[in-house]
C-alpha cells in the first residue's frame, strides 16, 4: 500500500531536535518505508540526520510518502503527531 500525506507544520518551533526525535522514533516503529520531503530536500523518516536536514519551520508544507503493509496505521499516527504539535506545551 502507498499513501501520500500533505502536512503543514503548525507547532511554533517546527521540526526542532525534540520534535524530529519524536517523529523519527515513531517512523522507526513501522515496516513501511517513509519518505518526507519539502520543496528542496527528501528525507528518510527513520533517519534522524536527514530529518534534521529538512530544517522545517512553522508553516512549512511537507509531503510524506508511506509505502508498505502497515502504511495505513503509520500515516494515521504520523499525522496525529504533527497535529498534536509533537505533544509539547507551547
Amino acid at each position: 500500500m502507498r499513501l501520500e500525506l500533505d502536512i503543514q507544520i503548525i507547532n511554533k518551533l517546527g521540526l526542532h531536535t525534540r520534535a524530529a526525535a519524536k517523529l523519527v522514533k515513531l517512523c522507526s516503529q513501522f515496516d513501511s518505508s517513509i519518505e518526507i520531503s519539502n520543496h528542496k530536500r527528501r528525507a528518510n523518516g527513520k533517519s534522524m540526520m536527514s530529518v534534521m536536514m529538512l530544517a522545517a519551520s512553522q508553516g512549512t508544507k511537507l509531503k510524506i510518502v508511506v509505502e508498505g503493509k502497515d502504511a495505513g496505521e503509520a500515516s494515521r499516527q504520523i499525522s496525529d503527531l504533527f497535529e498534536s504539535r509533537f505533544e509539547e506545551s507551547e
Partner: peptide, 13 residues
Amino acid sequence: LDAHLLMMQDPVL
C-alpha cells in the same frame, strides 16, 4: 542525549 542516540543509530549513517 536522546537526539544523539538517534543520530548514532541512524540507518542512513
